[in-house]
Amino acid sequence: MAIRSSQEAALMLNGFKNPGRIALIGGSSEIGMAIVTQLPENKSRQVILVDRSGEYALDVTDKAGRERVISKLFDEGDLDLVIIAVGLLGNNKDLSTADNLVAAMEVNYVGTAHLLELVADRMKKQAHGEILAISSFAQVRPRPDNFRYGSTKAGLDFYARGLALALDGTGVSLKILRPGFVRSKMTAGMDNAPFAITVQECGAYGVKALQSRKLVTWAPSLLKYVAFIFRSLPPAIFRKISSR
């Protein structure tokens, strides 16, 4: 669908609960785009991409920049849906330098949580809207091969769950998508983990998350039970299987 300028007609949430004006923060996110393109059709929908360049250019690690872009988005009109799909991935090989670790923390936790805070504040003023935050299976339990990445998602997940509770009764709802391993450009070159899904499948779960009453949606769904087992394994056994 065309990304139109902010002056053209954008339909606010209509009687079919079909979101009109949408912002995708992390405009080049494959998962983000997969969600947006699988939403129910709406001819009047306006999708605003917030990315490193363009009219709404944003460096997620820039605090003042985050404040400026979110203000601009909401000053131009009500937003029905904001999807936050920015993130730096790395299994621990990539995050082995202190700099890479800090960069991941700044994008995945600090930047993302701050964006959620800013978006929630403005959405509360309009008293309607939906937010989708993208967490990860990696935050379930630290493993030696991805605890650094997992920690950034754990911080974000905790924050998002708290924010969802704080938004009760404000007319604004927040949902969390927890994907497992998704085959995409971001994971290219990595070994497939079990229960891997494609970007399109992950997008479909994202749409499901928005239409569900549940706070958390796993992608794929059975990861919910995998997570339970994962969390429950005694430490001795967990160490054995995760050191492979």
Partner: peptide, 17 residues
């Protein structure tokens, strides 16, 4: 304090004072 209102069709829920 803000509460939820809707039109006669019950297809919009909107919170206002």
């Amino acid at each position: 304090s803000p509460s939820e209102f809707s039109g006669w069709g019950n297809n919009f829920q909107s919170r206002s004072h």
